[in-house]
Amino acid sequence: MAIPARDSKHVRPQRYSADRLHRRLSVAAIVAGFLVAGMTVEAQDTPKSALLVISKREHALAIVDPSNLKVIAKVPVGDDPHEVTASSDGHTAYVSNYGSGAFHSLAVIDLVRHQPEKAIDLGALTGPHGLTFVDGKVWFTAEGAKVMGRYDPVAGKVDLVVGTGQNRTHMISVTPGGDHIITTNVSSGTVSLIDKESVRMPGPPPGMTPPPGAPRPPQGGPGGRTDWNQTVVRVGNGSEGFDLSPDGREVWVANAQDGTISIIDRQNKSVVQTLQVNVAGANRLKFTPDGRRVLVSTLSGSDLTILDAHTRKVEKRIPIGHGAAGIVMQPDGTRAFVACSPDNYVAVIDLNQLTMTGKFVVGDEPDGMTWAARP
């Protein structure tokens, strides 16, 4: 039988004796103590080397202990996260909020405290996607603005923007020192090779006197500033996943629409070979740390394709699920991890045996991955 509601104005307030109140507070303190103790037992510190994996569906970054493949913590990273990079000291992660070219922020995560920090608003640099951390700075692509940019965490500002003039500037790689940038431009079917070079400062036209206070160009030799020069290399349709060979000589590019791989000679800045390897839908491409093999994932098939980098032929195709996206190599070269987005797990690949040895779950629709290492 339902109990009729009483008017709050007619409810007599309860009175507790001092002893009864003390007993209630003591019980509450004990319960709180158990809860805190449980949280303390379950909480884990981030190991010095950790695997970071994005869960796109859960809008979270999973921090994974590579020794047991267990998720240590999950941290919210905002809407539509795609790629992740970590600072050189392993303390901070940065995640691109993509939004198919519409969003304009980078999420920032404290990897030690497992907490989000204030996001970086990129303003007009919309559609951030590809990320890398080089020379103490965050380098990113911005599809909506057709540029790549660089964010200085110390100064708290974007300190470099270089336009590509290409459609869907998507993934990025930067060489140590930050003098050479590589991006893939998906819809244009091109790769941008962007190099930092010294330029000569031209003096005034003959017969013209420089205005008062204008800097004098140096006499002879290059001028006192640098510029960025871009070479656009046509590869194949849907150029997206790519990697720079460990020796720095070649760029291998997976062309998703054509199902091919283009190999660019960096010195000559031209395609020297196109491999017909049937990798339609190719999403990511990565060299093993020793440079012997190349792994290619695809969202359009069940296999991870492994190529011999020397013979440039398919060595093996490993069934791993119903499609895959991100690839990351364990630094010691023993394992690779592949984000099987449609299956909601990460596949573990033994790089010695070339077999899938397991899988683990970090959250729905895993995608971008990277390593975070603390000294």
Rank of each mutant, 00 (worst) to 15 (best):
D7S: 13
K9T: 08
K9L: 10
H10D: 14
P13H: 04
V27Q: 10
V27G: 05
F34H: 06
T46K: 03
T46G: 01
S49T: 10
A50P: 00
S55N: 09
K56D: 10
R57S: 15
H59G: 10
L61A: 04
L69G: 00
V75H: 02
Y94E: 01
Y94A: 02
S96N: 02
F103R: 13
V112R: 12
Q115W: 07
K118G: 07
I120V: 13
G127C: 12
L131M: 08
V134Q: 11
V138D: 02
D152Q: 08
A155G: 11
K157Q: 09
K157S: 08
V162G: 03
T164W: 01
N167C: 05
I172N: 01
G177T: 10
S187V: 06
V191H: 00
P202N: 14
P204V: 06
P204S: 07
G207L: 15
P210G: 07
P211C: 03
A214H: 07
P215H: 12
P218T: 12
P222E: 04
G223W: 04
G223V: 14
Q230D: 13
G236R: 02
G238M: 15
S239M: 11
G241E: 02
F242Q: 09
E250V: 04
Q257M: 10
I263V: 15
I264M: 08
Q267Y: 11
L275H: 02
N278M: 07
N278P: 01
V279A: 03
R292E: 05
S297I: 15
S300W: 09
L304M: 10
A309R: 05
I320L: 15
V338R: 03
V338E: 02
A339P: 01
N344M: 14
L351G: 02
V362C: 10
M369L: 14
T370H: 01
W371I: 12
A373D: 13
R374G: 13
